[in-house]
């Protein structure tokens, strides 16, 4: 398990927790929008993919019906906004029959204690 609480520089980072899958609702897009704006303002931002939010990272996504934009290009854009810390709940991957090899971006996995520790260590966070 990776220690989530050590990095002093991150204690004031804004943690955006993404819990919804792409396409079916606008939660994921609107959550990423908040992350991008915060980063554009120079704030350190981290993302935690929990629950159905892990589906956001699934490899091989495309635009939706009626040309609905996907969120995968937004996720690929994160590095341009210097958002580099992506945390994923290992248990939520397991529950959905996925592994990190199914994901489109390099991530750091957390066990349940790690998820709780990350939440506890970040004074500023928003769930989408």
């Amino acid at each position: 398990m990776t220690d989530t609480t050590q990095s002093a520089s991150s204690s004031e980072a804004l943690l955006i927790v993404l819990r919804h899958p792409p396409h079916g609702s606008s939660w994921l897009r609107e959550g990423i929008d908040v992350a991008l704006v915060a980063a554009a303002f120079g704030r350190e931002v981290e993302l935690l993919f929990q629950g159905d939010g892990v589906f956001a990272l699934l490899e091989g996504q495309a635009a939706g019906a009626l040309d609905q934009k996907g969120t995968h290009p937004q996720l690929k854009m994160l590095e341009m906004y210097d958002i580099e810390r992506l945390w994923v709940s290992q248990r939520d991957l397991d529950r959905r029959g996925l592994t990190v090899d199914d994901l489109m971006l390099p991530v750091t996995t957390l066990d349940p204690d790690g998820v709780a520790a990350l939440h506890a260590a970040r004074p500023l966070s928003l769930i989408f």
Partner: peptide, 18 residues
């Protein structure tokens, strides 16, 4: 090129980076 890759226009900081 940025728009083709990411389907979004960049803010100033990512534009500078690109």
């Amino acid at each position: 090129d940025f728009y083709r890759r990411y389907e979004a226009a960049p803010a100033m900081r990512p534009l500078v980076k690109a």
